[in-house]
Amino acid sequence: MAYKKPSQKFSGKIREVTVGSGLKLGGESVLPFYKFDGDTGAKPAVGMEIWDVFPESWPQSLKDIFGPYADDPVKWAKFCVEKYNPDFICIKFEGANPEGDDRSPEDCARIAERLAGEVPVPLVIAGCDSDEKNAKVFTKVAEALPDKNYVFLSAIEANYKEIGAACGMAYGNIVSAESSVDLNLAKQLNILITQLGVKPEKMVMNPGCAAVGYGFEYVVTTMDRIKLAALDQNDSTLQMPIISPVSFETWKAKEAIATEEDMPEWGGQEERGIAMEVSTAAGVLAAGSNAVILRHPKSVEVIRKFIDELL
């Protein structure tokens, strides 16, 4: 009997969400990279992270690359776009942290406006460690940039009402629903945000991210189960594309920040940092992430190649 290639068909499909004016996320009706089974949707997007302040805490190797441009976010973003061609720029308002520079929401909005005006790729707006401050910053930024379809990273259980109402509803941008590696809460938060009135096509989700070796198995199994519920059970509350802020996690890990003097047996610090970022990004992409945020240009290059060769 002739061999008949099996293929797995699902009744569900990840919703296609447009970021900015033309960057599409999601749309797949098969497991990640299973192009032999059907439509893999839009290619996973690769974005680069920049800060609103000089990234003093970043490892020297990154400061060597971005340092000359990092005194101004617009200059920094343009350098990234021109040199490394990312699909989007993620501006993280680290300077808004009340325990740091405490930059005002109005100031943040002005920076975001300049970026929007001068950077040709879509923006992802990320906040600092204060959920309360983020709600204020996001509201102002969304107000300054209405109907841009920019992604706001993220709304969590504590501030989703404010962020959902401002970013998702009043000012026509995209809300990312963030939960910390909790399958049931991921679903619940999506429901709460849609019940608020945010349209599902104006939503993405970040069901939690971690660096490899730091509870990463939980991240992967959570993402797997979300994708299976979305596809196999056709669960419309989980059919949002997933965005993973990989760099936020991997560049905090000791493998990325320990210097060669401190850990001579671990080898070169820059290579370690890239390896952490690349393996984490490859892992979340294989588990269903539709967009990853990265820092190191080498990681961007490797992950882009990884995606291109698999699709």
Binding site: L183, N184, L185, K187, Q188, I191, L192, Q195, R225, A229, Q233, D235, T237, L238
Partner: peptide, 12 residues
Amino acid sequence: GRNLYCDSYLEL
């Protein structure tokens, strides 16, 4: 196990 649990599952 035919529908993923969440607190609002009855509202859907």
